[in-house]
């Protein structure tokens, strides 16, 4: 019999969202797939790794949905959960989640040397902060199987998509703000928060110094330690700022091949920008202030 996974470990997986996304009510894996007997028949590669990869991607996407509607609420279910549902289009319609995931995974030149330990810390951390979490009735063997798969994934040569540790950071903060967020609608704890609770999660990230780094329980080499703390502050701000930029940009309707728009961007609809599309100029020249066209000393 495998030994039981400690409660703290179980709690941590729940808090970063993996446990719920994989196995919670509405989770993406059935418990039978994590049956230890199945794993034993494939000793070279735990089959759970292949099963887990899409679960992690779905978890990241769900978390980012929670983020982008925080930046730009709309008529969708995430905005409703957040308590800020609106009749006009929002982040789901402006493609902001794709924007942020694509940016994080493909374009943020975040050094792997840093992404990997942060990602590993997120996935393997214990973070026994004494918060009591409800609904952790998962059987130890299944949890252990999940853990093995995570470890295998992290030890492989596959680059970890940056959206995953970012999502896990948001989920960790979400459960710090509201422990009940480990369960509920959607796949991720962060997406289950109200608008005010999400703001509180960002407040925790923004005021970080040593606290959050300690919470991550990760050992960075000494010169990097200070960088990680500063970086998390930067990331906290950037997620709001960059998410907002994307939500209000033409991203979703821009065709990179023709360099033209396929439709009217959400933000243009909302704000009345360029009612007839791009221009060569405007008839907005009034004249010169006080009629003066040049000045001299």
């Amino acid at each position: 019999m495998p030994t039981a996974v400690p409660l703290a470990r179980r709690a941590f997986l729940a808090r970063i969202g993996i446990l719920g996304a994989a196995l919670g009510g509405g989770g993406l894996l059935t418990r039978s797939l994590l049956n230890p007997a199945d794993a034993a028949t494939n000793p070279l590669l735990p089959p759970t790794v292949d099963l887990l990869r899409p679960v992690l991607a779905a978890l990241a996407r769900d978390t980012m949905n929670g983020l982008t509607v925080f930046c730009q609420p709309g008529p969708d279910a995430y905005s409703r959960t957040q308590g800020t549902v609106s009749k006009t289009p929002g982040a789901m319609e402006s493609g902001a989640t794709n924007f942020i995931i694509e940016s994080l995974d493909n374009f943020v030149p975040f050094p792997d040397a840093l992404a990997q330990p942060i990602g590993a810390a997120m996935v393997t951390g214990l973070a026994d902060t004494g918060i009591v979490l409800p609904g952790l009735e998962l059987l130890p063997p299944q949890l252990r199987q999940l853990d093995k798969a995570l470890a295998a994934l992290l030890q492989s040569d596959e680059a970890l998509p940056l959206s995953l540790p970012i999502a896990m950071l948001l989920n960790l903060m979400a459960t710090q703000v509201n422990p009940l967020a480990v369960n509920g609608p959607h796949l991720s704890p962060f997406a289950r928060l109200t608008y005010a609770e999400k703001a509180s999660a960002f407040e925790l990230i923004e005021k970080t110094d040593a606290d959050l780094v300690a919470l991550l329980d990760v050992q960075f080499p000494e010169p990097l330690k200070e960088s990680v703390s500063g970086l998390l502050k930067f990331v906290g701000g950037a997620l709001i700022e960059f998410g907002t930029f994307g939500a209000y940009s033409e991203y979703a309707v821009f065709d990179p091949k023709t360099r033209k728009l396929k439709g009217r961007p959400v933000s243009w609809q909302l704000s009345g920008y360029q009612p007839d599309g791009p221009v060569e100029g405007w008839d907005d020249f009034i004249g010169y202030y006080q009629g003066r066209t040049e000045v001299h000393d």
């Binding site: 509180s200 407040e203 907002t244 930029f245």
Partner: peptide, 24 residues
């Protein structure tokens, strides 16, 4: 500014989010 840069400019702050938190 056009809309995305307007939105970005309104979102970059050292004072948290109006009505939510002030970041000290």
């Amino acid at each position: 500014l056009p809309p995305a840069l307007s939105a970005f400019s309104a979102s970059l702050s050292d004072s948290g989010i109006r009505g939510q938190y002030k970041n000290g």
